[in-house]
Design a binder for these strands. Sequence first.
DNA 1: ACTGCAGTTGCGAATGCCTCGCAATAAGAC
DNA 2: GTCTTATTGCGAGGCATTCGCAACTGCAGT
Lengths: 144, 144
Amino acid sequence: MSRVATELKTALGEAGHRLTGPRLAVWDVVASSRSHLTAEEIAESVRDRDPTVNLSSVYRSLSLFAELGLVRESNLGANEASHWELAHSDESFHLRCTSCGKVEHHTGDLVTQVEHHLSHHHGFHASRVELLVHGTCAECAATS
Amino acid sequence: MSRVATELKTALGEAGHRLTGPRLAVWDVVASSRSHLTAEEIAESVRDRDPTVNLSSVYRSLSLFAELGLVRESNLGANEASHWELAHSDESFHLRCTSCGKVEHHTGDLVTQVEHHLSHHHGFHASRVELLVHGTCAECAATS
DNA sequence: ACTGCAGTTGCGAATGCCTCGCAATAAGAC
DNA sequence: GTCTTATTGCGAGGCATTCGCAACTGCAGT
């Protein structure tokens, strides 16, 4: 079993879940992708390795992984399919260019600053910060 | 015609749209509500004043208002209906308590700070910032 | 290894939110 | 008031996601 498979098995096992083919396939796809994918896109890649895996199972695996804190689901817009990505320990957020449509990841202390501000000044204890910024990326601003 | 109705008519007129019964009803509901509502909730209130107004028209009115910058649509979670509220000039964001479910509005310069940071350091020109913070509100933190 | 039994899966139907197409209606310019 | 065309109501449709259930399969115990 590969290293990632072992990691997944441990995480699942600790929570009383089993390591199954569909789960491993979904995990491999998400873990090896640099960007965020929709459930449908993940299902497509999963089917390349095992065509019997059902879309429902992809959804179920993703929900479970999210519950376990292994992946993150993000809404990039109303009426758009959710996007999924590995949960990174560093706080990050998304920048979406309204011109080219590209979605960049961005890490920084902005998120932590927000948390501190809310906690200190408003007694609100943040557990998750979802930040999505729409605008024009540097490249598109240059070419326009 | 009431003051809000005149305001709406002006905004619509400038963009080449008509002031209609359904639009006015939707506007009244959104403008007189302090919180954000789902399209379905808005439709319910609209039907109290005019039962012939269709849900589609509510959606169409809301989309139009959003395009004109009169209202804002926000996604409070994956697979949840969008919530709609009057567009305020001051930048605001949402705090959602995972314990009591309440969604608070919050205004502050956080959003502006984010915009400045991105513009100065990363050449990303922000047009809209969506910030949703999940966590425990002061009240829930006190009673737990 | 073999067995038993939850936890999982595949499948298809169902749900929820939202959008569309189209004929009928009505706003507002003249 | 008339005319033009934006807008509406209605029902059907679309898309992402979830559900119910019988069949299947990890894996713990033997």
